[in-house]
């Protein structure tokens, strides 16, 4: 950007990497990944971060690395394996029952969030999610290696990944609708320790990781996280 004649300023989440890369102007913030501007739905705090970032434009020379100091941040625990060792699993329903039961909560989420949803990467509508789960179960059992509902522009590995991302979003957005004040850790703890989807994705990740197909194996790592 700067070599082309543009002035740049930005935010970094890993101070150690910023020190190596030496961007021209960078503000290092101590927030969890996925939380660059600090707090959701807090415009004044987000403006504070942006003001500190734009203030770097006034520096006469660089590279400039500024540290944004704030209170200690709680680490978010994202992965199924880490949550599972820390939480006691509760009795779960069948994934098909779960899908049906949380649909009303998901619709509530759409109403709360002006229709905005992270669901949609797979191009599969939520009414077809039971068919997706059926496919994933058969894939785990080795009964099938492909799905007739897969859009042809996606490889099977990426179709699975986008479906899994959509299922996770569907579950988590539904949960936020029920418990809007739940912390990040509470949301992931619920997903990984209290749902049947968690067990399905754990099994799916294991099967994909054992695959001889390099693309499926590469995608496997993110399935249960």
């Amino acid at each position: 950007m700067e070599e082309a004649g543009l002035v740049s300023t930005g935010i970094a989440l890993v101070e150690e990497h910023a020190r190596k890369i030496k961007p021209p102007r960078i503000l290092s913030v101590p927030f969890n990944f996925g939380n660059t501007l600090g707090e959701v739905n807090n415009p004044s705090f987000q403006h504070e971060i942006l003001e500190a970032t734009f203030d770097l434009l006034d520096r006469p020379e660089g590279p400039v690395l500024e540290i944004f100091e704030t209170d200690e941040i709680e680490r978010v625990v994202l992965s199924r394996s880490e949550v599972k060792t820390a939480a006691v699993s509760k009795k779960k329903e069948d994934t098909f029952v779960e899908l049906a039961n949380i649909k009303a909560n998901y619709e509530k989420w759409l109403g709360m969030n002006k229709g905005r949803t992270a669901v949609g990467l797979s191009n599969i509508g939520i009414d077809q999610f039971p068919a997706v789960v059926e496919f994933l179960k058969e894939f785990i059992e080795g009964k099938t290696h492909d799905s007739e509902i897969r859009p042809e522009q996606f490889s099977i590995a990426h179709f699975i990944r986008y479906c899994v991302d959509d299922l996770k979003s569907y579950y988590l957005e539904s949960r936020i609708a029920v418990d809007p004040k739940a912390s990040m850790n509470e949301l992931y703890r619920w997903l990984w320790s209290e749902t049947a989807l968690s067990d399905l994705l754990g099994e799916l990740a294991e099967v994909m990781n054992d695959s001889e197909d390099k693309e499926i194996k590469a995608v496997a790592f993110g399935i249960a996280r």
Partner: peptide, 25 residues
């Protein structure tokens, strides 16, 4: 914003915050 979605492949970051507020990133 309802038409902006995220397909980042990294496993290492929280998604729930951007569900709630796209301005977070």
């Amino acid at each position: 914003p309802a038409d902006i979605v995220q397909s980042h492949t990294s496993i290492g970051f929280d998604r729930t915050s951007i569900y709630k507020d796209i301005n977070i990133t």
